[in-house]
């Protein structure tokens, strides 16, 4: 298993609830795993845990293993090597990852020489990488500055930089959210190719459940620091099981047959100042019973694959489409 997060709980001083609460998540080599949630759900923190770029005073329990290495125990050089070589991260805004006064080529060469290549080899490799990520005329791109390229092209450059160290695991944190839809599709197609060619593991973090379900192999849905559902992506559209997952699907506008009424989830996503005595979703949940507010959430395996963290699971209908079609 490439990334293996086991029962990870992270607590920060000054917050009412854990930032992450018993999160278990796996990514195998060559697998695209989606991690979906709204703001404050802990999806980005989960990615940071894999890089161990967590705030100083975080108290962690559980384990994070990347390729068998216990990341939480790494220090000094080993940690630096882990961040530089094994895992790479692509963020939402490519411009913040690139120095505006330096050329695209310099950015890549610096990454490559960091992995032990000499200057000349690094230069050749940088041009190859620019070609790999689908930029036309890579020699010219090499000499250009960030302001001369569009957002989509820059995100390709950042991906090229991420590939420089030939990492096994790529973390994409809202990597396509700031891009136009057509550009997003191109970047996603690129990532899919790279995954296949290099048997990269990809953790794809997004707020967009439709996107994750359409693109990934498996999807985890997070709410208030907890994984509430995990399923093979195909199942999510037809058989969402957790009321929150169903709610997300029911409230997202979609294209196609007629105009379905969207059903908003009442309330708001919880912040880190909200504390809970039971299921975090209970007070927004249409299926909640009074007992849910005191129930200690734990994942319940689904028949087939995956799990959902819901007390009412046995009583709820398997398919999530009834509610959508009842009008």
């Amino acid at each position: 298993m490439l990334l293996d997060i086991e029962n990870l709980t992270l607590e920060l001083p000054g917050t009412a609830r854990p930032v992450l609460n018993g999160v278990s998540l796996r990514v195998a080599g060559g697998e695209v795993v989606g991690l979906v949630g709204e703001s404050g759900s802990g999806k980005s923190t989960t990615a940071r845990a894999a890089l161990r770029t967590l705030p100083d005073r975080t108290v962690a329990s559980g384990s994070v293993r990347v390729d068998g290495t216990d990341v939480l125990a790494l220090t000094g050089d080993a940690l630096r090597r882990h961040r530089a070589r094994t895992v790479a991260m692509v963020h939402q805004d490519p411009r913040s990852a690139l120095n505006p006064v330096r050329r695209i080529g310099d950015f890549l060469v610096e990454r490559l020489t960091g992995t032990g290549l000499d200057k000349k080899a690094a230069r050749t490799r940088a041009v190859e990488l620019l070609d790999t990520v689908g930029l036309s005329d890579p020699e010219r791109r090499f000499r250009q500055h960030p302001h001369e390229l569009s957002g989509g092209m820059l995100q390709r450059v950042v991906i090229a930089g991420a590939l420089a160290a030939e990492p096994r695991l790529l973390l994409a944190d809202e990597a396509t959210s700031a891009l136009d839809v057509t550009t997003q599709a191109e970047i996603l197609a690129l990532l899919r190719t790279l995954r296949a060619d290099r048997s990269l593991g990809l953790l794809f973090i997004t707020h967009d459940l439709q996107l994750a379900a359409a693109y990934c192999d498996r999807v985890y849905v997070m709410y208030a620091g907890r994984v509430v559902e995990e399923q093979p992506a195909g199942g999510l559209f037809d058989r969402p099981r957790h009321p929150y997952t169903k709610g997300l699907l029911a409230c997202s506008p979609t294209l196609g047959e007629g105009r379905r009424k969207i059903l908003p989830i009442p309330g708001r996503p919880p912040s880190l100042a909200d504390a809970f005595g039971g299921c975090e979703f209970a007070d927004r949940c249409p299926d909640a019973e009074p007992e849910c507010s005191t129930w200690r959430p734990e994942p319940v395996p689904l028949d087939g694959e995956g799990a959902a963290t819901c007390r009412r699971l046995p009583a709820l209908p398997g398919a999530g489409t009834e509610r959508r079609n009842d009008r």
């Binding site: 709204e38 703001s39 997300l248 409230c251 506008p253 969207i262 989830i265 996503p269």
Partner: peptide, 10 residues
């Protein structure tokens, strides 16, 4: 956020 977006659309 997605769930809030739906509320505003409604």
């Amino acid at each position: 956020d997605v769930s809030i977006q739906a509320q505003i659309l409604q």
